[in-house]
């Protein structure tokens, strides 16, 4: 498999430099770290909001660095959680005196490394709170699993918590805002193809020409189920039904929807999915306040998509509509 890279082991380092080169006035790289922060971090008197995880999900996380969203983003190797000391450097660099909220996508690797970092930061006297996003409804939350994964819904957490912090809320309140999104969001994804990691250079899993995977995550893990190919409408119906079953929303509930591309899917197809999704929302009596379509949380070059639904109230609407100025998301005043 061909990729536009140099050596696989350099790809994260070079990507980070390329990001800073694209946004020199917005982003700054911490010396010797695989960590980007907004250029003006730490923002004095503001709670820092940081995230991080394995690379390969671009524009997540560094694309969301900036006013109204994230202060720091740590980039591990491809699909590999950043190390605790990296995360600690990030946390310290983003503390403007009001403490730091770590937004963690639920996975033991990420959680363990963020835990380590929080312990280290605590020693340095930084207040740290952690929220764990676990929006993936494909995974049963049972004794048998390590909990539900954190996937595309994370971006909504970044947006809402980032806006709350920008408004001057304290650490506890920013964390509560993040939890509110987490409590109200569900996602389910599918893949037409596996991604190809730079290191392995071949598809992580094999999928026949007439097969698709349902319930995939964002790391090329095989999904929960393999089925025959379906039409875009059928895929949309399947994913949406699973998400709505999980959320159990009331008639007339206002929601934000997100059709997220996995990286290799043409935007054209995401809009075809969105068309059916909006019909379904209508049929279900849900009131779509905003509909997002695009590549928010990718899995390298995987073809496929995920559908996210998040119930919103007045507070969340205000926060999601609040100004943001980041490389990958801009919301005007």
């Amino acid at each position: 498999m061909k990729k536009l890279i140099n050596e696989p082991e350099d790809v994260v380092d070079e990507m980070l430099d390329g990001m800073v080169a694209a946004h020199p006035d917005r982003l700054r790289r911490l010396d010797g770290q695989e960590v980007l922060v907004r250029a003006d971090a730490p923002v004095d008197g503001k709670v820092g909001v940081v995230s991080g995880g394995g690379s390969g999900h671009e524009p997540t996380h560094a694309g969301y660095l900036g006013e109204g969203m994230l202060d720091g983003a740590a980039a591990g190797e491809v699909f590999t959680s950043p190390t605790g000391d990296q995360l600690n450097e990030m946390i310290e660099a983003c503390d403007g005196g009001e403490g730091v909220l770590c937004v963690v996508k639920n996975y033991e690797g990420d959680v363990m490394n963020f835990d380590t970092a929080a312990e280290m930061a605590d020693i340095e006297g930084v207040d740290v709170e952690q929220v764990v996003v676990n929006d993936d409804v494909a995974v049963e939350d049972s004794l048998y699993t390590s909990g539900r994964r954190g996937v595309a819904g994370t971006i909504l957490v970044h947006k809402a918590a980032g806006a709350k912090a920008a408004q001057g809320a304290d650490l506890q309140t920013v964390a509560e805002t993040a939890e509110k999104v987490i409590d109200n969001v569900g996602t389910m994804g599918m893949a037409l193809t596996s991604c190809v990691t730079p290191e392995k250079g071949e598809p992580t899993f094999d999928l026949g020409d007439d097969e698709i995977e349902l319930g995939i995550g964002i790391h090329g893990e095989p999904g929960t189920e393999r089925t025959e190919t379906m039409s875009a409408d059928e895929v949309t119906e399947h994913l949406t039904e699973r998400v709505l079953d999980d959320l159990e929303l009331d008639d007339g509930q206002e929601v934000v929807t997100m059709v997220n591309g996995m990286g290799g899917t043409p935007l054209m197809e995401l809009f075809v999915v969105n068309r059916r999704l909006q019909e379904l929302m209508d049929d279900e009596g849900l009131d779509v306040w905003d509909a997002w379509v695009g590549d928010y949380m990718t899995s390298l070059d995987m073809e496929g998509c995920s559908i996210t639904v998040c119930a919103v109230d007045e507070e969340l609407k205000e926060l999601l509509a609040a100004p943001a100025d980041t490389p990958a998301m801009t919301v005007q005043e």
Binding site: G54, G76, E77, F79, T80, S81, P82, T83, G84, Y107, E108, G109, M112, N113, D115, T116
Partner: peptide, 8 residues
């Protein structure tokens, strides 16, 4: 140096 789950 490792990261991921196996690092910690």
């Amino acid at each position: 140096e490792v990261g991921g789950a196996s690092g910690p």
